[in-house]
Design a binder for these strands. Structure first.
Lengths: 110, 110
DNA sequence: TGTTCCTATGAACACGTATTCATATGTCGC
DNA sequence: GCGACATATGAATACGTGTTCATAGGAACA
């Protein structure tokens, strides 16, 4: 199905998106390129924190950076990432199916 | 785009999949229901570790449990999760686009 | 050049969590 | 019932990492 390396690689992507602030940063960039300042104010985070997160997202190619004047704009690098994210968002928004509950005692469906 | 709660909820899913062993467990269940023992041997993990991870995955509805005889089988609960994962896997396997490198000095594309 | 604006970086801390060990719970066959 | 098998659980630990504070780098403009 998926070898160990691929699993680790994919998990690394998930891990980066698994932090709410970081996911928020990436999600906000889905609309279009955003400067660090804009991200900072939109998400009400400290500039330093945003910058640290951007560094990781950049390194993982989940975001790309480009300077325009004094500011630096971050955006989704390619359609792969964009589709991945929009897919996930759609799946989140779609209503969940209702299936058997799990017995909290045994951890097993009766 | 995505409000704070939705972001947190989605991030929680990503976080769970962001651990290689946990992702491996879920991925191995894509083929079909697997008992705890099978997962343990396939991934060469300790039984305790697998069980701990299964607990989290169960709680997050990323996996569902069902007993058959002495053993307990885990499987993908619905098509949402399955599609999500297969999408991600496909995106990972597809060849990556080649775009501008980032200047390691400035962290900016030249 | 000096100043201001915008972003990046490094150190330090606090906190969560993945893993292990030991033990408990539960199920089937005798 | 008792044994063996399969899974779950709890405590303890070691490690990573998200956040903050302070500071540095770089670009535009007087």
């Amino acid at each position: 199905m998926l070898n160990a390396d691929q699993t680790t690689e994919l998990a690394e992507l998930f891990r980066l998106l698994g932090e709410p602030n970081r996911l928020g940063i990436v999600a906000s960039c889905l609309d279009g390129p955003l400067s660090v300042g804009e991200i900072t104010t939109r998400l009400s985070l400290s500039q330093s924190l945003v910058s640290h997160h951007l560094r990781l997202l950049r390194a993982a190619r989940l975001l790309k950076a480009g300077r325009r004047g004094k500011q630096i704009f971050y955006s989704i690098p390619d359609c792969h990432v964009r589709e991945m994210l929009t897919n996930m968002v759609e799946h989140l928004i779609e209503p969940h199916e209702l299936d058997d509950d799990i017995n909290p005692e045994t951890g097993v469906t009766p």
